[in-house]
Design a protein around this nucleic acid. Structure first.
Lengths: 221, 221
DNA sequence: GTCCACTATTTTGTATACAAAATCGTTTGT
DNA sequence: ACAAACGATTTTGTATACAAAATAGTGGAC
């Protein structure tokens, strides 16, 4: 009965394969694993003190999501994109984010407004203290709050997927404290557009935000 | 040198896991595997005369794509959606398809126009002969041709993914020959809108097409 | 007769073993 | 000296074995 009441509420028992998948995702998001880097099954297995089997399962799932790619020859690699490919991925993400903003603006309620504002407050706090890692987390939470405000988990999921794929490239642009503050300020304008509840304004606000984000990502990559 | 010149041009050597993944996808698209149906590793392994290992790999990739879902208890199941969930998936798909149509309308060229028209010709032929399986294939090729016309493989990929996920639910609506002909006719209007090269017209045309598609899917499910 | 508990069976998750394919290095021939 | 080919080593793909968890089935007690 009280078997997992002590632990986090909904924390189900986690398999080794899932643990590896989550850890690899985190490493890629943080930048510990860089785009283009090769991942060998045996290395990863050793690192997690597991056999190759769960590692292969994690690789399968991550390649299916486009986070990892199989090279033409041996090995699995952290996905790496040329300038051209990056532009295409950002274009796709930009379309989805704009759709999310538009839908969210039409369905805002007290809760979703509060959660967007709350996430933004964390962004500002992290930006002012110059805590890069905290800002990266808060920034993701902010965008996630917008996705959630659509009330559509499928839209939210694909938007998140694109964020995971572009994470390593966006992360590089947050080098200095001013970058964080500028980003947080950009959020404020975006919030105004979405909270206007005018869907066109919301979508255009998000397009502007994403275009700026891509410009900076291009500079940093 | 001539090691695979006899076979299909780009057909690389395929692993058992990939073979199983493709076959399962096909079965789900066709309807041989119905939403909600449970898949047991040993059964599938026996069917493909393989061990559980490649089956598990295929399951991993398919669950990562949302084609299969892990039940809360045992087993992996073909994804099944409630009326509400189906509406959310179609909403998301509808947004992405509209974005594809808009972008495609801006980037049309001789080749992409030709391929859209060619796919539509196949749709008409299949519809008139009342060949349901052929129409399903041609219909997918038609939409794929529009995705490809965006020139953005990432947009194309997510659009395809949603099509795969909704395949079983859309397939049911093509019961009679008239359904096929009506669908092909609807394509014609859509082509006109996209070929207008007015992005707003193209997006609205696709929205109309998708809305109609969802209405029929709802009736059939 | 119903409910609970205990056991048995099924099923999943992980490890290991083995075979095949590919890369790398060395050697040999021209 | 350079190229080609052969062999050795690494790495992947698949099979099998084993352990743990969950469900189902059976029996017993009230």
């Amino acid at each position: 009965m009280a078997k997992d009441s002590a632990k986090g509420a909904t924390e189900a028992r986690i398999s080794t394969a899932q643990r590896i998948e989550i850890a690899l995702l985190e490493d890629i998001a943080i930048g510990a694993l860089e785009p283009g880097q090769r991942l060998e099954e045996v290395n990863i297995a050793a690192r997690f003190d597991a056999s190759r089997t769960p590692v292969r399962e994690a690789f399968s799932r991550l390649t299916a999501q486009g986070i990892l790619v199989q090279g033409e020859r041996r090995g699995v690699f952290v996905a790496q994109y040329s300038r051209e490919e990056l532009s295409q991925i950002f274009e796709a993400m930009h379309e989805i984010e704009a759709a999310c903003a538009r839908i969210a603006s039409q369905r805002l309620n007290l809760l979703t407004r509060a959660e967007i504002l709350s996430a933004q407050a964390e962004c500002i706090a992290a930006a002012e203290s110059g805590d890069r890692a905290a800002y990266l987390r808060a920034n993701e939470a902010f965008h996630q709050a917008i996705y959630d405000a659509t009330g559509n988990p499928y839209m939210a999921e694909i938007a998140s997927e694109f964020r995971r794929r572009t994470g390593p490239f966006r992360a590089k642009k947050f080098a200095r404290r001013e970058d964080l503050i500028a980003s947080a300020k950009s959020h404020q304008a975006l919030i105004d557009d979405i909270f206007s509840e005018d869907s066109l304004t919301a979508a255009q606000g998000m397009r502007a935000h994403m275009t700026a984000s891509f410009m900076q990502a291009l500079k940093a990559n």
